[in-house]
């Protein structure tokens, strides 16, 4: 489980997160929504331990990543995490196969046949066999996301962090990525944290949702709670209206 306790984060004079606390439910997908610049990706990087908060604590499976002093300590905690980045963040010089095999090669002592078996299973599960010899730049962004998903799941993490799953994708490919998330969640049962501003599309993959606004959690609940909410900011955000309490930054 991921537990975020009273997190404060600022960049210079700009306060981004101002006392965020939330327990992400194990085995469920929680989506963090909010307008651009509200600190969603910052929260993800704090969970990953790439950024350090000024105040507060983040526990992953009971271990504090904010109190971990060395990269080695952080890496032990990160072993529980998988991440699907916004742009998939595949390594340009490696083929699809090598990208998926990368965490196994770097972090385990598995033999080549064992690695091959696991990667082949993943290629099969995510329908990537025809592309395994291709380089990332030779496949579409949607397919890259699929490869990114395969890479993040190959170590069978307890927690999967997904940053803006369908940014830059057309509606059809975007839907394909949501279907992929649903498929993978049903198969691997991970605790999911999805960062998104795509409403109402993201409702379909969310068990729980939290909305960030002005550095705080503005609303938390199920997707239905968001739809039923009479809060002006929530409705403005869902409907994508310009008039309302949320101003464009």
């Amino acid at each position: 489980m991921i537990s975020v306790k009273d997190i404060h984060k600022r960049f210079g004079k700009q306060i981004v997160l101002n006392g965020i606390s939330h327990d992400f439910m194990p085995g469920k997908i929680t989506t963090v929504v909010g307008p651009s610049g509200v600190g969603k990706s910052v929260l993800l990087k704090l969970i990953l331990g790439i950024l350090v908060p000024e105040k507060g604590d983040i526990l992953i499976e009971g271990h504090s990543i904010t109190l971990a002093n060395t990269e080695a300590e952080k890496n032990e905690i990160r072993a529980n995490l998988g991440v699907l980045f916004q742009s998939a963040a595949l390594f340009d010089s490696l083929t699809v196969y090598d990208n998926i095999a990368f965490p196994l090669v770097e972090r385990t002592y598995l033999s080549r046949p064992e690695i091959h078996e696991k990667v082949s299973f993943m290629l099969e599960a995510l329908s990537l066999q025809p592309y395994y010899t291709k380089l990332p730049q030779e496949i579409s962004l949607g397919m890259r996301k699929r490869v990114g998903m395969a890479r993040s799941l190959i170590m069978e993490p307890k927690v999967l962090l997904i940053d803006e799953p369908n940014t830059g994708l057309d509606p059809l490919v975007g839907q394909e990525v949501y279907d992929l998330i649903k498929l993978c969640h049903s198969q691997w049962k991970f605790t999911g944290v999805v960062i998104s501003h795509e409403l109402p599309e993201v409702f379909q993959v969310s068990d729980r949702m939290i909305m960030l606004l002005n550095g705080k959690i503005h609303l938390e609940g199920t997707p239905q709670d968001f739809i039923d909410s009479t809060d002006l900011a929530v409705q403005q955000f869902i409907q994508g209206r310009l008039d309302g309490p949320i101003t464009i930054q």
């Binding site: 790439i50 991440v83 980045f85 742009s87 963040a89 990368f102 972090r107 170590m155």
Partner: peptide, 16 residues
């Protein structure tokens, strides 16, 4: 690699 998050990806995979 830095701006396309590949370095962050390395760190997320516990690779220095």
């Amino acid at each position: 690699m830095r701006i396309t998050e590949q370095i962050d990806a390395l760190r997320s995979m516990a690779v220095d």
